[in-house]
Design a protein around this nucleic acid. Structure first.
Length: 199
DNA sequence: ATCTAGATGACCT
DNA sequence: GGTCATCTAGATG
């Protein structure tokens, strides 16, 4: 399998969010592959985006968003959850795409163990759930996603036609004022037999 | 099926 | 001190 090139992540965050649907998120642990197909994403774009973690300017937490595209922005929230983003856009312009759901494809035994007690359809249908399933945490902050040797990377995989994509406002940003609250920057795969992960 | 409350700590004006 | 790009268990219809 071949990694997406670093310049894949160079464009506007909403475009990258759309383009990431169907791609394969790969996590290597002790030489073993855990992976899943990306089914849901959200774009966060620039200091002007009142829902973006860069809205207060450069901080220690969001610093990687200001760097070159194609790296992992991973943050800790609600006291217990890790979430994964891909940094997008040119160096100096903070933007990222949150990976919200995947369809597990490789390393199912490990994923199952990491999500013990949880029904299979709920293993990776949320941004913190997929991080738990693939063992993604702060130790992978700023990991390079566009390098074949990386422990965390994204590979070319399936093409998802527009008919199978739903576009909606972003989730969990009720604090944000308009127009950001209603910006249609959430992308989700729907109606694809075998690709769907949510009831 | 849908709702609610509580966890728990880093980060922010 | 308040907020948070969330998840889970438990209660209820």
């Amino acid at each position: 399998m071949i990694c997406l090139p670093c310049d894949f992540y160079l464009g506007p965050a909403p475009e990258i969010a759309r383009a990431l649907l169907g791609m394969r998120l790969v996590r290597i642990i002790d030489g073993t592959r855990l992976s899943g197909r990306i089914l849901e994403t959200e774009a966060y774009s620039g200091e002007e985006d009142a829902a973006c973690h860069a809205r207060f300017g450069l901080t220690k937490r969001n610093a990687v968003m200001y760097g070159p595209p194609g790296r992992a922005y991973i943050y800790f929230t609600y006291g217990m959850h890790w979430c994964l983003n891909t940094v997008t856009g040119a160096e100096g312009s903070p933007a990222a795409v949150l990976v919200r759901a995947i369809l597990p494809l490789e390393g199912l035994e490990t994923i199952s163990a990491n999500r013990k007690g949880v029904p299979e359809r709920n293993w990776t249908d949320g941004p913190a759930k997929l991080c738990k399933a693939l063992e993604i945490d702060g130790s992978l902050y700023a990991a390079i996603l566009c390098s074949d040797g990386s422990p965390l990377r994204i590979e070319q995989d399936a093409e998802i036609p527009d008919e199978n994509i739903e576009i909606t406002p972003r989730i969990g940003i009720q604090y944000a004022p308009e127009p950001w609250l209603s910006m249609p920057w959430r992308y989700r795969v729907i109606r694809l037999k075998g690709l769907q992960n949510e009831h």
